[in-house]
Amino acid sequence: MPSIHPMYGGVSANFVRGGATTIENAEYGSAAVLNFEKTPIYFLLGRGETSGRWNIAKGEGVDDYPQLAEFAHGGGTDHLVSLLEFPKEAALRGVSLSLTSDRPGGFSDDQLAIVAKLFPALGLACYRIAASKTAADILAVYTGAKTSARILAGEIQRGKGGSINAAILLADLRNFTALTEVYQPGEIAGFLDEHFELIGRHVEENSGEILKFMGDSVLAIFPTDAEDQQKACMAALASARNILEANKVLNGQRRNDGGPDIGVDVVLHLGEVFYGNIGARGRLDFTVIGSAVNEASRLEKLCGTLEQELLMSESFATTCAVACEYLGSFELRGVSKRADVFKLADAVF
């Protein structure tokens, strides 16, 4: 089936008698997608036909389609393909069902009659799976895997949510606004995608979740409870250090092509936040709010002042299990209490 996903062009399920069942996601740019034009499915789509049959034993299609040559090499004798269209309201076009036999003489008339009855039922099942999977996949892409799971579990009422403790990671691209006066919008979007990709990768590999892209900033959380606060802080810190290192590598590669250096400032904080649905009646955002989020945002403004690319709040620095260096106490706009600010000890970083 084709898929609606920013990374995958389609998904296939392969069943082999006596072997394992495999599910494969075909990434954009992968061999599976690039070679799609060399398949019987593409042939039928191009001719506007919904079914086809190739007598592999007689060599039909073997020279035209690598897949049929592979089946022939494995003893295949007959190959069927049926294209079933989904309802028009579905964004997905439909599903292709293929069946290969190694029976001498290929499929019998009785077997073909069974297949003719079976394929429509399979198509209906595929439609149900596709609709459910597409909804879950797209929701996860736009809200994050953990947040989407909560939404699909029914947490969709405005104001519904609760207080949680979390390590907060706020990453902001340094002096990015100035680039908009030099580069075209398409180039700017490309730069953002490159940096957001590496930030997202290192957040997710440490069990964090990105909640929001805000212009050239990223907000992520690492939820925790009272017993695991240090673990969450260490996960957020590992993400931050990996982000900064990967960002240097990315800038080095872009510099070789004559592109700009784009720095990233990261702030780490630990506190209580409200995690839930916020917004208008017909347009909600599942996110975090609270004083801890505001404080993290204000701390980020100090990165340039202190000439530091990684800053930590007192609550974070005293909880994580690494040596930190005190930088001073600072007023934060809109925050009544002065904030003690830390960085990693030079020997640690």
Rank of each mutant, 00 (worst) to 15 (best):
residue 2 P to K: 15
residue 6 P to F: 01
residue 8 Y to A: 07
residue 13 A to V: 15
residue 14 N to V: 13
residue 17 R to N: 10
residue 18 G to I: 05
residue 20 A to P: 01
residue 21 T to Q: 03
residue 22 T to C: 02
residue 24 E to V: 13
residue 25 N to Q: 08
residue 27 E to Q: 10
residue 28 Y to E: 06
residue 28 Y to P: 09
residue 29 G to V: 13
residue 30 S to Q: 09
residue 34 L to D: 15
residue 36 F to D: 14
residue 38 K to E: 15
residue 40 P to N: 07
residue 41 I to K: 11
residue 45 L to F: 06
residue 45 L to C: 06
residue 52 G to L: 00
residue 53 R to W: 02
residue 53 R to N: 05
residue 59 G to N: 02
residue 61 G to P: 04
residue 63 D to M: 04
residue 64 D to R: 09
residue 64 D to F: 03
residue 65 Y to F: 14
residue 69 A to I: 08
residue 69 A to S: 14
residue 72 A to Y: 11
residue 77 T to Q: 02
residue 82 S to C: 06
residue 82 S to V: 14
residue 83 L to E: 02
residue 84 L to A: 08
residue 89 E to G: 08
residue 91 A to E: 15
residue 101 S to E: 07
residue 107 F to I: 10
residue 112 L to R: 06
residue 113 A to L: 11
residue 113 A to V: 13
residue 119 F to C: 05
residue 122 L to A: 09
residue 129 I to Y: 13
residue 131 A to Y: 07
residue 132 S to I: 09
residue 134 T to N: 11
residue 135 A to T: 14
residue 136 A to E: 10
residue 136 A to N: 07
residue 137 D to C: 04
residue 139 L to V: 10
residue 141 V to E: 09
residue 143 T to F: 05
residue 145 A to E: 12
residue 147 T to K: 04
residue 148 S to R: 07
residue 148 S to G: 05
residue 150 R to D: 10
residue 151 I to G: 06
residue 152 L to K: 05
residue 158 R to H: 03
residue 165 N to K: 11
residue 168 I to L: 14
residue 170 L to K: 11
residue 171 A to C: 05
residue 172 D to H: 00
residue 173 L to D: 01
residue 174 R to A: 10
residue 180 T to K: 01
residue 181 E to C: 01
residue 182 V to D: 06
residue 195 H to M: 01
residue 200 G to V: 07
residue 201 R to H: 09
residue 202 H to S: 04
residue 206 N to T: 09
residue 206 N to F: 00
residue 209 E to A: 01
residue 210 I to G: 03
residue 213 F to M: 05
residue 217 S to E: 10
residue 218 V to M: 06
residue 219 L to Y: 07
residue 220 A to V: 02
residue 221 I to L: 01
residue 227 E to N: 11
residue 229 Q to F: 03
residue 230 Q to E: 15
residue 232 A to K: 06
residue 233 C to T: 08
residue 236 A to F: 06
residue 238 A to P: 14
residue 241 R to P: 04
residue 242 N to R: 10
residue 243 I to Y: 00
residue 247 N to W: 00
residue 252 G to L: 03
residue 256 N to A: 13
residue 258 G to H: 03
residue 260 P to Y: 00
residue 261 D to C: 07
residue 262 I to E: 01
residue 263 G to V: 09
residue 265 D to N: 15
residue 267 V to D: 06
residue 270 L to M: 08
residue 271 G to C: 08
residue 272 E to L: 05
residue 275 Y to I: 13
residue 290 G to N: 06
residue 295 E to V: 08
residue 296 A to W: 04
residue 297 S to V: 07
residue 297 S to I: 05
residue 298 R to F: 02
residue 302 L to W: 02
residue 303 C to F: 03
residue 303 C to A: 15
residue 306 L to M: 05
residue 309 E to P: 10
residue 310 L to C: 06
residue 315 S to A: 11
residue 316 F to P: 00
residue 316 F to T: 05
residue 319 T to A: 00
residue 320 C to L: 04
residue 322 V to W: 03
residue 322 V to L: 07
residue 325 E to N: 14
residue 329 S to V: 15
residue 329 S to N: 15
residue 331 E to A: 15
residue 335 V to K: 04
residue 336 S to L: 11
residue 342 F to Y: 15
residue 343 K to L: 12
residue 343 K to M: 13
residue 344 L to V: 11
residue 349 F to H: 12
